[in-house]
Design a protein around this nucleic acid. Sequence first.
RNA 1: GGCCGCGUGGUGUAGCGGCCUAACACGCCACCCUGUCAAGGUGGAGAUCGGCGGUUCGAAUCCGCUCGCGGUCGCCA
Length: 606
Amino acid sequence: MLKTHYCGDLRKDHIGQEVTLGGWVHRRRDHGGLIFMDLRDRRGIVQMVIHPDDAPDAHKTAGDVRSEFVLSVVGEVAARKEGTENPDMPTGDIELRVRHLEVLNESKTPPFPINEESDVEELLRLRYRYLDLRREGMQRNLRIRDQATAYIRSFFRERDFTEIETPMLTNSTPEGARDYLVPARVQPGTFYALPQSPQQYKQLLMVAGVERYFQIARCARDEDLRADRQPDFTQLDVEMSFATEEDILELFEELFSNLVREVRPDLSFVSPFPRLTYEESMRRFGTDKPDLRYGMELFDINDVAASSEFGVFRNAVTSGGSVEGICVPGGAEFSRKQIDSLTTFVQGIGAKGLVSIALLGQPGSLDEEGIRSPVAKYLAVDLVETAAQRSDAKQGDLLLLVAGEGGKPKLEPGSSHRVRPALDGLRREVASRLQLADPNVLHYAFITEFPLVEWDDEEERWDALHHLFVAPMEEDLHFLDTDPSRVRSRAYDMICNGMELGSGSVRIHKRDLQERVLRLLGISDEEAKERFGHILEAFEYGAPPHAGFAPGIDRIVAQLAGETDIREVIAFPKSKSGADPMTGAPSRVSDEQLSVLGITVVEQPE
RNA sequence: GGCCGCGUGGUGUAGCGGCCUAACACGCCACCCUGUCAAGGUGGAGAUCGGCGGUUCGAAUCCGCUCGCGGUCGCCA
């Protein structure tokens, strides 16, 4: 090695030792005579002093050194002069008296600062990712990710799980996300698909008698990107035979509790993890992934709205829709402008409008003076009192109500189907404006009893909410043929701070039930045989009951690192258009490459 | 694909019809400086304002198109 110690490791104990360090110039302070330089490596930063009298050659070289030069230095670790210690640095008690200095490599001035955590445009960071990753915050995130995955592996291995790799080149699946396709050269005209998840393989491993499987698996889905979605991502894939949902939830509660203690002991979490049914979560929060760190739960006033003078409310309820709202603590002091911007906000997510009611008076004894609302003259005091009571509102709070008409398509603005999503969005927006969410809390929770299927308006058929292999709840089986929307599944999600971390389920392990579900989803027996013949067949050879779970590693680590964007914990992520600005991927390939594969590119006309 | 926001020296921002011959901070370059640690001092270089077109006597500023980036809805078994 070209170095004997790491810069960041040097302490008082090393005083008197001669060491050789290698690292990058973090900062340079040239006093004309004396030169100070901070040298940085993966473990931290140490101050070097280059004295013109002690080391004239080194001093001469140091004069031409600039930020990010790679240096090799030899010197003695020394106590800093009395009064010049730096308590803000772990190495602040000591410094390196440089005797010999060699420039191992020069550096151009970097396109953005590496020695400070300033905001830099995303694109530029990705273009020079190798420099971005050199920055302290990203180094920390890379290490948090490593700690998390290392812990996860040890956790499962201790519990007798076997880590098994599954193929990257697999078959396209008709349902779900769009596949990334890979042409198969040896059989021209045919394609592999990159795995959206190892779902089928892990179930087949259960049939194979593995009983306890896990994998930190790379997956790919060709869908539009988001702050929490990359086209290629990593999931912790787990499957267990002879397990019920209870076994899985307990296992993961333990895993996540330990993970926080291991990686971020300074963060707190709520224990035991709350469990909400899908129905309850939708009713109380309007979403299946609520942020539980703050209140502002939804309430409805359908009963009193039905007879309201206010046409918007009355029509909503009589048409079969609903009027629901949230209560913003202290929101009565929101300005007109703030409320207008909330209105614009909900309109952007499918609400027709927003009714705001500021409670200037004391709920319980409200009068017209105590209510301030753009539609105050249409609102009976009784209605406001009811709303205030249901939301446990206090004087000075702000009620925000959204109405939705029944009988409209799901996605149409003003539809009753948009009410809860709109309130969910509003709840998040308000919480973010008022900073209601404690950044030091990881509020994990499980959502259970999801519907098995939902009606797809466009395709006019039932669609699996999770995937094709989720087992229906035994007690709801009789609805399978009569009213599929009422069948609850044995699926569960894990959520944290308003983000879905992963989902899982007890699987179907019998051929006849799997075939019934496939039929319900409009997959013909013929198609089923072609697509899923192998798994249906496997179920006939003693498939054990099994259940599994698959949380996203990128999201888990992002939260552990205190980041809201998973790109902050992925070494080489892609931009929103799926491109890698550093390598230029995706790119065109040569005609030769295409012709070997028997592929012709059709230019897209405008 | 729809909607919203952003795009000004190397970086981050300001400017939002004539005061812009484009400002500020950091960075960069030169010189001075032997105890600093976001070192300090003096001086300097550096952007025609993402691109194209238009409105106007006049555009970084207004309009249209386009590209890029981000957010969001659709989408994400």
